[in-house]
């Protein structure tokens, strides 16, 4: 195996769909198929273990969809999305200028997508932002129902109803649910953008809280207040943040 070989993982829940990609890749000399899998969990695991250069990623899959997988893998991995027809996903790809293949695709189309991926890898262009794509692909009026995080080698799914609050920490956010918490590399603003704004409110530059968890509000400093949540957490609120919370909870 030469050092310039491109290692590829194919992710699609349909065997026939994987076969088409395998067949097209068979014509390429510098490509090695490192693995194949049929669901999102496996895709994340393989991405971690094998550290491939490129992933073919189906958008609609069991367990995690293509966007969720993208959120959980290293940004160095180039991704070519593949979909049969998904209006929202296609709109998001177009808006974010992400290359994708529409099933069924021609050999020429496949080669050009592969060529672009090669260039991206050669120039080390950054991957498209997963959270931006996810926000773009959101069905209108439909907030995210769950948040996915990587817990070591495992993938953890947190339904948004179980999320108590989220705290920003440098490049990471810490998601709190029950007595547990998870770190995820994402900005608080991009998470806020996909959550239901009637349920989650940014009470502070560094805090996003689930308003259903608020049990008490106590004075903190002269100008600011503390939100006490059901799990006992004390969340400082800025003046603007407290105003937003008040408006949402309709308190005087």
């Amino acid at each position: 195996m030469s050092a310039t070989m491109m290692r590829v993982v194919i992710v699609d829940d349909e065997e026939l769909a994987r076969h088409v990609i395998r067949e097209h890749l068979g014509n390429e000399e510098d490509v090695e198929i490192a693995a194949e899998c049929a669901n999102g969990f496996e895709a994340v695991r393989l991405a971690n273990e094998l550290k491939p250069d490129l992933m073919f990623l189906d958008v609609q899959m069991p367990k995690l969809d293509g966007f969720e997988v993208l959120e959980l893998i290293e940004p160095e991995i180039a991704v070519i999305f593949v979909t049969a027809f998904d209006q929202y996903a296609m709109r998001a790809f177009d808006a974010a200028a992400v290359d994708y293949l529409l099933k069924p695709f021609s050999a020429e189309r496949f080669r050009s997508a592969l060529e672009r991926a090669r260039q991206r890898l050669a120039t080390k262009q950054p991957a498209p932002s997963a959270s931006e794509l996810k926000a773009l692909a959101r069905t209108p009026d439909q907030a995210a129902e769950r948040v996915v995080v990587k817990d070591g080698a495992r993938v953890h799914i947190i339904p948004v109803g179980k999320l108590d609050y989220v705290e920003a920490q440098d490049d990471y956010i810490e998601l709190h649910s029950g007595q547990k918490s998870w770190l995820k590399q994402q900005s608080l603003a991009s998470l806020e953008a996909v959550l239901d704004p009637n349920r989650f409110v940014r009470v502070h530059r560094s805090y996003l809280i689930n308003i259903e968890r608020v049990t008490k509000i106590e004075p903190y400093t002269k100008d600011t207040k503390l939100a006490i949540l059901t799990d006992g957490a004390q969340i400082p609120m800025s003046r603007a943040g407290y105003a937003r919370l008040k408006e949402l909870m309709r308190i005087e």
Partner: peptide
């Protein structure tokens, strides 16, 4: 429809 066509293609 498109998924079926893709299966045929394979």
């Amino acid at each position: 429809l498109f998924n079926s066509l893709n299966s045929i293609s394979a």
